[in-house]
Amino acid sequence: MKRSILLATAARYLMPLMLIFSVFLLLRGHNEIGGGFVGGLVAASALMLYGIAISPAALRTLLPVEPRLLVGLGLLAALTSGLLPVLTGRPFLTGLWLKTPLPVIGKVGTPLLFDTGVYFVVVGVVMWILLSLAEEEAK
């Protein structure tokens, strides 16, 4: 695949911005437009933009962990958020909230952990699928 210098340069700067935006979407998703699904998709798009503009291999070196690890972590986070209330004797997946809101993030509770899990699963799944295909293509 021929690379466009313009796209590659843009991707270098766009990618971090989009990632930050995706985290922003995730955190405010409970009160405003956004959420784990959208955040995860935006993050995945950002990473794939980088992967296509520069190269899948470059994206792979950039990623600190394997995408499938993200999937596992995400599922684990979602499951943990469901099991935490069970430990306190409430039904599975009951929302538990800290009394005092944290700075920047706002109110923190198990639904946020759940949403983070969704975020990671979505990023992981999309990256896993597309990166595997891109690497297959690059062979």
């Binding site: 409970h30 009160n31 979602a78 639904p111 759940f114």
Partner: peptide, 22 residues
């Protein structure tokens, strides 16, 4: 504790469904 009703449905009210979906 959420103002975005769609997201609250996804992560809280129907969290089990979402768990299944992911």
């Amino acid at each position: 504790n959420g103002r975005n009703i769609v997201n609250v449905i996804l992560v809280d009210f129907r969290g089990l469904d979402t768990l299944g979906e992911i």
